[in-house]
Amino acid sequence: MIGAAAIALIVAIALMMIRALSGPTLYDRVLAMNSLGTKIVLFIGVLGFVLGRPDFLDVSVLYALINFVSTIAILKFFRYRSFQVPLMRRTPARRPAEGGEGD
């Protein structure tokens, strides 16, 4: 039955690939890749249990981390056309308040 779960996840991944390839806008494709990554994380975990080697979960943890960072990186690149822009500009008013809090 756990094999059936893995097959169901593969079917979901294949269907999501259709949206990633045919998505009309850029954001559809990014959304499809993000969702695909979540499914792959789950699939790698389930595959570890199918093969009887739950050590696959380490790969799964790493994939989850990279998936999130890559989504944000792609979005940032297509918004600014560059990686050399600070994502968050701190307003000068907040800085001394935070410094006082930390001490």
């Binding site: 756990i2 949206r19 789950l42």
Partner: peptide, 20 residues
């Protein structure tokens, strides 16, 4: 456990169908 995994996989398919 296997049943819950299967339900999760089916929900993943449903979500994908919705995305399509």
């Amino acid at each position: 456990g296997a049943l819950l995994c299967l339900v999760g996989g089916i929900l993943a398919i449903i979500g994908t169908v919705g995305v399509l």
